[in-house]
Design a protein around this nucleic acid. Sequence first.
DNA 1: GTTCGTGCAAACGGTTTGCAACAAT
DNA 2: ATTGTTGCAAACCGTTTGCACGAAC
Lengths: 132, 132
Amino acid sequence: MNDVIGLLRDHGIQPTPQRIAVAECVLEETSHPTADQVWERVQKSCPTISRATVYNTLNLFVEKGLVKTQVLREGTAVFDPFTAAHHHFIDEETGQIVDIPWDAVKVEGSDSLEGLDVREYQVVMRGRRKPG
Amino acid sequence: MNDVIGLLRDHGIQPTPQRIAVAECVLEETSHPTADQVWERVQKSCPTISRATVYNTLNLFVEKGLVKTQVLREGTAVFDPFTAAHHHFIDEETGQIVDIPWDAVKVEGSDSLEGLDVREYQVVMRGRRKPG
DNA sequence: GTTCGTGCAAACGGTTTGCAACAAT
DNA sequence: ATTGTTGCAAACCGTTTGCACGAAC
């Protein structure tokens, strides 16, 4: 899409075909892919792309504020295009990550912790998705 | 200490010298070491211990419920002897992890999320430690 | 003598880096 | 010509695994 190109430009990123392909993949709101998953998906539309380019591109996106990394799984980081503050739910069985809107959960007391200046926080929940 | 040996036995773990050394290190409440940091520290009292033994021992401790792993840093897991539910604060500058007592922060709404059965949760806070 | 624990080295998976080729301006 | 981008392969780091040695019951 053209708005992907515009979005890259807005963040000071030169829109090359590889970067557009990575952006299109990682900007799907719901997916929370790992870098390797992005590589697998992007290969379909851009078969010559290398792992290094995917990793470097994702790091560039993080640097430029286009996406955020979330440390939610062991061993690997996931990328999240939803850069506004929100919470996360992790399915213990499948590892699937679900975004939880900021207002769905209320947190009190984080601003009155002795000796700590809390600048951001999130609630990390674990459990199971209910069938249905 | 003798109570370390007893604690290992209570968890069904045979107390060998290596395991006692690892336990003494990882049971220091405040430190949240990575596996490699445990290895470095344990070497001082037990110079012949191998990385593999440290890693295997820590995994055994997790399996037996003596410690928990926390996925808070990128690239590596940390071990936490404080197995009861609690929250975490991460210093953005130093990466230092601070335990926050369960009651210091109140969370509301996690039990009424549509389609999700939340079995555990924690608040992950990031910011700076205040000087003084 | 069988079981369990250890140490070494090699393998592993995810990520990064060095470098040469290649656009694009 | 200079600057920035890509692809490859090798390096890298944290972790796991295979296997042979050694200790304990």
